[in-house]
Every structure is written in structure tokens, then in C-alpha cells.
Simulated scan of single mutants.
Amino acid sequence: MLEKDTQKFRLRLWKIFISTLYLSAFTFGGGYVIVTLMKKKFVDEYHWIEEDEMLDLVAIAQSSPGAIAVNGAIVVGYKLAGIPGTLVAILGTILPPFVIISVISICYNAFRSNFFVAQMLSGMQAGVGAVIASVTYDMGAPIVKEKDPMSLVILLGAFLAACILEINVIYIVIVCGLLGVARTLLAKRRAGK
């Protein structure tokens, strides 16, 4: 029985590594795109994480210092397999960019002036915008469907603060985190009465 559990754990670590390696190798546009693809892989395909929990993990990844792709790999890897999962997910996430950047730095002069590379990167920018918009919709739709007025006010307030008032996202995340803590404490207090 113990041997069977060890094999299942190793298989899960292997799947985490291959998934993060694949996502990192074929993702262009930064951490928000890879977090979206992690959601599709680990929530929608493998069903290892619930969607609400993935939203919480993304919030943790966004509020932590450092690259969001690595932070996302850390929290997802830890959730799925503890410290070994974290290490495997980090390795899978940082290996492709490391190799790609190493190759590009060697061939920098050839890439810098290549018309086709420049056009390919321009096309990728448009695709990245579409992926981010899709993820935003996928993650925001359940909040709207919940029809919780306070969640909708926080959602709209955060959007207005970021897009219209151009308030630094760090402050928005901190305020939303504090609002979440306050709501949780109030709900516990009401449940205790």
C-alpha cells in the first residue's frame, strides 16, 4: 500500500513538472498568461484544484514579491504536493525561460534586427491580450453569477481604481485583502452568535 502511494506521489510530481515545463515553454506574455493556463491544466483538466481555491492561489501569487509565473508555480506546487511539489513546479517553470534566454543572448545580434522575429513578437502581443481578457472573464464570471453585492462592489471598485484612477495595483491588492479579512471575520462573528 505504501509503495502504491509512493508511486502515485511520484507520478503526480512528474505531471506537475511536465505541465509547468510545457506551460512555461510555450507561454508568451508574462506571468498572468501562465497562471491562466495553470488554471486550465490543474482545475479544468486534472481536477486537482477547485476553481475558488485557484482564485485564492492566484491572489497569493499576485501579492507576493517576484515573478508571478514562479509565484504561481510555488503556490500550486505546494498545494498539490508540498515542498517537493514546490521544487518540481519551480524547476519546470524556470527551466524553459532560462534556456531560451541563454540561446537568445548568444544570438542577440541576429534576433535584434530580424524582421520576421519582430513581426512574430507583435502577433504574440495581440494573442496575449486575448488570453488575459479570457482569463479575466473566466475568473470574474463566477463572482458576478454569485450576485453577492459586496463582491460586485469590490470587483468594480478594484477595476475603477486600476483602470480609471490609475492607482498602483499593490495598493488595490492590499485593500482587497484587508476587505476579505474583514468580511471573513464578520461572517465568523455572525455565525458564532
Rank of each mutant, 00 (worst) to 15 (best):
187 A>E: 06
154 I>N: 12
103 V>M: 08
10 R>G: 06
133 A>M: 13
69 A>G: 08
10 R>E: 06
181 V>L: 09
39 K>H: 13
183 R>N: 13
17 F>E: 03
56 D>W: 05
110 A>K: 12
85 G>K: 07
127 G>K: 09
97 P>W: 03
95 L>P: 06
63 S>Q: 13
48 W>E: 08
124 M>Q: 00
3 E>Q: 10
40 K>N: 03
63 S>P: 09
133 A>E: 01
174 I>L: 12
19 S>L: 02
129 G>P: 07
161 A>I: 01
163 C>Y: 06
109 N>M: 13
2 L>Q: 15
58 V>F: 01
66 G>S: 05
2 L>I: 01
150 M>K: 12
83 I>C: 12
84 P>Q: 10
123 G>K: 04
32 Y>H: 02
183 R>G: 14
46 Y>L: 14
125 Q>Y: 06
135 V>A: 13
92 G>K: 00
51 E>C: 09
158 A>K: 02
174 I>E: 03
143 I>S: 08
104 I>Y: 13
150 M>V: 11
175 V>C: 12
32 Y>Q: 10
160 L>S: 12
186 L>Q: 05
122 S>A: 04
88 V>F: 07
154 I>C: 15
187 A>Q: 11
91 L>V: 00
109 N>F: 08
188 K>R: 04
143 I>H: 00
153 V>D: 10
15 K>N: 09
171 Y>M: 10
182 A>M: 06
154 I>L: 15
96 P>Y: 02
193 K>H: 01
187 A>G: 08
27 T>A: 11
174 I>P: 08
113 S>V: 01
104 I>K: 13
27 T>E: 09
170 I>C: 04
181 V>T: 00
25 A>T: 00
131 V>P: 06
81 A>S: 13
170 I>E: 03
1 M>W: 03
80 L>F: 00
60 I>M: 15
8 K>C: 04
